[in-house]
Design a protein around this nucleic acid. Structure first.
Lengths: 107, 107
DNA sequence: TACAATATGTCCTCTTTCGGACATATCAAG
DNA sequence: CTTGATATGTCCGAAAGAGGACATATTGTA
């Protein structure tokens, strides 16, 4: 492995660590951008972040975020299937702001 | 728990997660600031970061960083006790730069 | 002379996390 | 009419990680 490959592997590892630790915040950020449902989050993250997000990890996480009042779901019927479309709450927005301020301090 | 306490608890949790995921980078940063040995790192982090860093976690980490060529140790005799004083290598400095650039992109 | 501090190291168990399997239902396309 | 996509959910065994114990040696202090 040359230096460039090592660097790419390192960045990939940083990404992996970051997603592992702050997945809930990244999901919250996605929901803040636009109301979205679980299945679409799976597709979006696959496309945008090259992150293998398991649905078995995502759905419990979304339910937890809602239980804590950071997001709020609304059932929408779309072509015979029920979607749980989430949008961020004021409490969720506040949390995300605190998170972003925290991150800035780490630089 | 009121809102302020919740926020403080959240920041504390973010800190915990960050240290958990990027401890090696934080240690590397400390070594970059000035050559330092393990025991002093334990004292410094306790004082500065309010992080309970176990020596049983730190020493293997330092050895791993040296094995990978990011830091280099030099044994120094101080009042009859041997200290392994570490300083950062060029490879280590490059790694830290990559890490910091990565972090900036996460904002 | 015993206890706290300095200094570095390993090891083993408990807990947490992860990845994949199991589960269910509808719809669209071949 | 079966397979793939959409959509959401639980569960469990394996792997990884954390925390504290074990280990050793010297120095400073009460």
């Amino acid at each position: 492995m040359n230096e460039i490959d090592l660097n790419e592997a390192f960045i990939k590892d940083m990404k992996r660590r970051f997603v592992k630790s702050f997945l809930d915040m990244l999901i919250l950020k996605l929901i803040q951008d636009e109301p979205i449902w679980g299945y679409k989050i799976l597709k979006e993250t696959k496309k945008l972040y090259q992150v293998k997000l398991r649905h078995g990890a995502l759905y419990p996480l979304l339910n937890m975020l809602e239980m804590n009042g950071y997001i709020k779901s609304k059932q929408e019927l779309h072509k015979g299937r029920i979607r749980k479309v989430y949008k961020i709450t004021r409490k969720g927005t506040q949390l995300l702001n605190t998170y972003q301020n925290f991150l800035k301090q780490q630089l």
